[in-house]
């Protein structure tokens, strides 16, 4: 079986897997990070969203063979640290977004990528960027609010620097 070198949340892993194994299953079952979720397996729900070099990617639809080995992969476990949460995670807590919570790793990874690209998103930006992430529990209203409050807290931090 082919071997792959992965850098996940700044740590290096070597895994042995079939070339067509989606990154999702490599991360969950071989690297052992379970925060990234399976929902549809066909890039329809966003539960598996991670960052590859900062870009939000549906890991269920990215085979290992598509990786070059140099990519920096970030999952929900690496987006903040338990001691210092990311501003988006803080906002998620302040707005009490999660219900079941299953979709929320993917929601947060999408929101972090959105704010990295567009620090002050308009409603339309949020709608367009976040509509790839399904929340069956229906937390959309709070997601919108949390993104806006994360955006304004990030901007404030930026201004203080």
């Amino acid at each position: 079986m082919p071997k792959y070198n992965l850098t996940v949340n700044k740590k290096k892993y070597q895994i042995e897997a079939e070339a067509d194994m989606p990154l999702l299953w490599a991360i969950r079952d071989l690297v052992g990070l379970k925060g990234t979720k399976y929902g549809c397996g066909m890039a329809m729900c966003g539960a598996c969203t991670i960052h590859i070099d900062g870009n939000a990617t549906r890991s269920c639809s990215m085979p290992l063979s598509a990786l070059k080995g140099k990519e920096k992969i970030t999952t929900i476990e690496g987006v903040g640290s338990p001691a210092t949460l990311h501003a988006v995670q803080e906002a998620w807590i302040a707005e009490q977004v999660p219900q079941c919570g299953y979709c929320q790793s993917g929601q947060i990874m999408s929101a972090v990528a959105l704010l990295a690209e567009t620090p002050n998103p308009t409603d339309e930006d949020i709608d367009a960027y976040m509509s790839g992430n399904i929340c069956r529990c229906g937390t959309y209203d709070r997601i919108r609010k949390a993104i806006k409050s994360a955006a304004s807290s990030q901007t404030k931090v930026g201004m203080n620097k």
Binding site: L33, E77, L85, W92, V97, P98, G101, Y102, Q104
Partner: peptide
């Protein structure tokens, strides 16, 4: 505030 929310934003919650 819900006690289960922090673990649900860090990926630690176990389903």
């Amino acid at each position: 505030k819900r006690l289960d929310v922090p673990a649900k934003v860090t990926g630690e919650a176990v389903f």
